[in-house]
Computed example of a mutant assay.
Amino acid sequence: MIGADDQQIFTRTFTPMDAGERTPILLFHDSLGCVALWRDFPNHLAQATGRTVIAYDRPGFGRSERRHDVLAPDFIAEEARTVVPALCEALEVSRFIACGHSVGGGMAVQTAARWPECIEVLITIAAQAFVEDRTLSGIREAKAAFAEPGALGRLERHHGVRARWVLDAWTETWLAPEFSCWTLDEALALVRAPTLAIHGSEDEFGSPRHPERIASGTGGQALLLPGTGHTPHRECPDLLVEKIAAFLTRLDAE
């Protein structure tokens, strides 16, 4: 647990024996996520890339300090503006690879746009670049499912008393009318880091238009994983790690 942005933030670091001076990878989790829900992915990624991987619970999530406020419409950019620099200062990290899943991918994009001197590589996994009908439909279905008796207990296992806040922060923010025009377009235009946008072909929260938009906006590469949904790090972790490691290896060789 570290103090960052006047809040207590839970972090966990995964360091392979051969990490050396390689730039670390910072993971940004999704709307219902936390460090624990990455499961074995951070350690697997660290071992495959030979880089330290840092995962953290965003304020209000997992084991970090509770929040009671309503997320502002610009909460994705706000993470990059305030939490990330405070976190990096506390961890003494000056340069890193930004890697985010789902909304965490949007936060990674915003971070790369706002702090280009700090970002060596940008990697998004199942990230949304705009508000799509498929995204809203998936959120409505999830909201209905969590309304079933006992369903919230799945979140409580990882978020405890924060579970209701975590769920509402996702569903009520994305479904709010004022969020309907949100996009990453302005941020994408400012990204200078080599970019890999990974997406599952069967992602229930976003079509392949999202990685295409991220790649075209950054001059990066879009990669579609066949037969994969919204959580590649759980559905095909070996393949996902292989693709990320190969991308970083190619960059190192250039």
Rank of each mutant, 00 (worst) to 15 (best):
D185Q: 14
T173W: 02
G219W: 08
R114A: 13
A222H: 13
F14S: 03
R234V: 02
R234P: 07
Q47M: 10
T13E: 15
A86L: 08
V241T: 04
G206N: 09
T218I: 08
A55F: 00
V70I: 13
D57S: 02
A48V: 04
V109M: 04
I123K: 00
A176M: 03
L122T: 07
P226I: 05
E21G: 04
D252G: 14
F146V: 00
Q8E: 15
P211Q: 10
P85S: 10
E235Q: 14
D74C: 10
F130S: 12
E156S: 00
R234N: 11
A36R: 06
A145R: 11
D57A: 02
S207D: 14
G20F: 05
F205G: 01
P149S: 01
F75P: 04
L136I: 10
L196Y: 09
G160N: 02
M17H: 13
H210Q: 12
C236T: 05
G106D: 09
I76G: 02
C236V: 12
F179Y: 15
C236Y: 01
L188N: 06
L32Q: 00
L152C: 00
R58G: 04
T23W: 06
N43S: 15
T49W: 01
A19M: 07
G60N: 06
G200L: 03
L239W: 05
I244G: 08
V93H: 08
T171E: 04
R157F: 00
G100T: 07
R114S: 12
A46Q: 06
I198C: 05
F75C: 11
F28N: 07
A187T: 13
A55L: 02
G62H: 06
G20Q: 10
A55C: 03
E117F: 10
I125K: 08
W170N: 05
T173L: 10
H29Y: 02
G105Q: 03
P85C: 13
M1I: 14
P59T: 08
V109I: 12
C181S: 15
P24D: 06
L122I: 12
R95V: 06
M107G: 07
W174I: 15
G160D: 03
D74M: 10
E89D: 15
A77V: 06
I76Q: 01
P211M: 08
S201G: 11
A176E: 07
T195C: 14
F10R: 07
G227M: 12
I139V: 14
L225G: 04
E242Q: 15
P194E: 09
V241K: 02
W165D: 01
D6V: 02
S31N: 11
W115L: 15
L136P: 03
V83S: 06
A113W: 09
L27F: 03
R164D: 10
A80I: 09
R162N: 14
Q221R: 15
I97V: 13
E141C: 09
A72M: 11
G217V: 03
A126L: 11
